[in-house]
Amino acid sequence: MPLTDPDLWNLIRTWPLPYSDEMDDGVTPARRCRRFEDNLRRAGDWTEDAAEEITIAYRQFFYLKALTGETLTPPKWIDAAWHQHLAFPIDYSALEAGIGRKIVHQQQLNKEERKAGWNRGREIWKAEFDEDPPLKMWPPLQVWWRPWAALAVLIIGVPWSVLLVKSEMAGLPPGLLIPFIALFWLSCGCVAVLIYGSPRPDQMSRCG
């Protein structure tokens, strides 16, 4: 599927991103930064390959923002590149002028806005680039267990299971008692996910 605005993408894809001429001691031998990717690698302590991937993904994300003007929640890696770009306001404004539109960086979105922006970003990415965003960078939204969710299930489920077995319900046929206990444990798990589960990946930024 062709891009909605190939001229816009080509402009953003080839636009020279700014950089700061600082010493990068995290590579061997140490050298001065000569590209946006070098600054990004130094700031995030990433590998050079990772910094390259993030920069490309940032350009794609910037294109989606410019194309739609919508609130899109990027992964924290892309947001790190976005913040680095914003640290050069003259260059950032020059790119905005070049594409003829403002790209607003909204901060401190609420949980629902972040979830909606995360899903919408993935949706538009696939529609424009004819593929899902990199899974390791921008995975689908799902419920992620926290360690204390499993602990809550054990704390609640074990005592109640023992009580059920020792109570008068123990007189029930095993064919009824065992499914009842299994259903109870399943209910505990669902409640724990709702209360303690994280409704977003840890990679999600707070901006959009």
Score class of each variant (00 low, 15 high):
residue 2 P to L: 09
residue 2 P to I: 03
residue 6 P to C: 11
residue 6 P to S: 09
residue 8 L to H: 09
residue 8 L to P: 06
residue 17 L to N: 01
residue 19 Y to A: 09
residue 20 S to Y: 00
residue 20 S to F: 00
residue 23 M to E: 12
residue 26 G to K: 11
residue 26 G to Y: 07
residue 28 T to W: 02
residue 33 C to I: 01
residue 36 F to M: 02
residue 37 E to C: 03
residue 38 D to N: 01
residue 38 D to P: 02
residue 40 L to K: 00
residue 42 R to V: 02
residue 42 R to K: 13
residue 44 G to Q: 08
residue 45 D to R: 13
residue 48 E to Q: 12
residue 49 D to E: 13
residue 51 A to Y: 02
residue 51 A to R: 02
residue 54 I to D: 03
residue 56 I to R: 11
residue 56 I to C: 00
residue 56 I to T: 09
residue 57 A to E: 06
residue 59 R to M: 06
residue 62 F to H: 11
residue 62 F to R: 12
residue 62 F to V: 04
residue 64 L to C: 13
residue 69 G to A: 07
residue 69 G to E: 05
residue 70 E to H: 10
residue 71 T to H: 01
residue 74 P to Q: 12
residue 75 P to V: 01
residue 75 P to G: 03
residue 78 I to S: 00
residue 79 D to M: 03
residue 80 A to K: 03
residue 81 A to S: 08
residue 83 H to T: 01
residue 85 H to K: 07
residue 90 I to W: 01
residue 93 S to D: 13
residue 94 A to W: 04
residue 95 L to P: 12
residue 95 L to N: 11
residue 96 E to P: 05
residue 99 I to G: 12
residue 101 R to V: 11
residue 102 K to N: 08
residue 102 K to E: 14
residue 104 V to L: 14
residue 107 Q to M: 09
residue 109 L to M: 12
residue 112 E to V: 05
residue 113 E to W: 00
residue 116 A to N: 11
residue 118 W to D: 08
residue 119 N to I: 10
residue 121 G to V: 09
residue 124 I to K: 04
residue 125 W to Q: 05
residue 125 W to H: 15
residue 128 E to R: 07
residue 131 E to Q: 15
residue 133 P to I: 02
residue 133 P to S: 11
residue 134 P to I: 02
residue 139 P to Q: 06
residue 139 P to W: 06
residue 140 P to F: 05
residue 140 P to T: 13
residue 143 V to L: 15
residue 144 W to R: 10
residue 145 W to T: 04
residue 147 P to W: 10
residue 149 A to L: 04
residue 150 A to C: 05
residue 150 A to D: 15
residue 151 L to V: 15
residue 151 L to I: 13
residue 153 V to A: 13
residue 157 G to D: 14
residue 161 S to I: 07
residue 161 S to P: 03
residue 161 S to D: 06
residue 163 L to M: 13
residue 164 L to P: 01
residue 165 V to H: 10
residue 167 S to I: 11
residue 170 A to F: 10
residue 172 L to T: 04
residue 186 L to H: 01
residue 186 L to C: 11
residue 188 C to T: 12
residue 191 V to L: 15
residue 192 A to Q: 03
residue 192 A to L: 04
residue 193 V to D: 09
residue 195 I to N: 03
residue 195 I to C: 07
residue 199 P to M: 07
residue 207 C to Q: 07
residue 208 G to N: 14
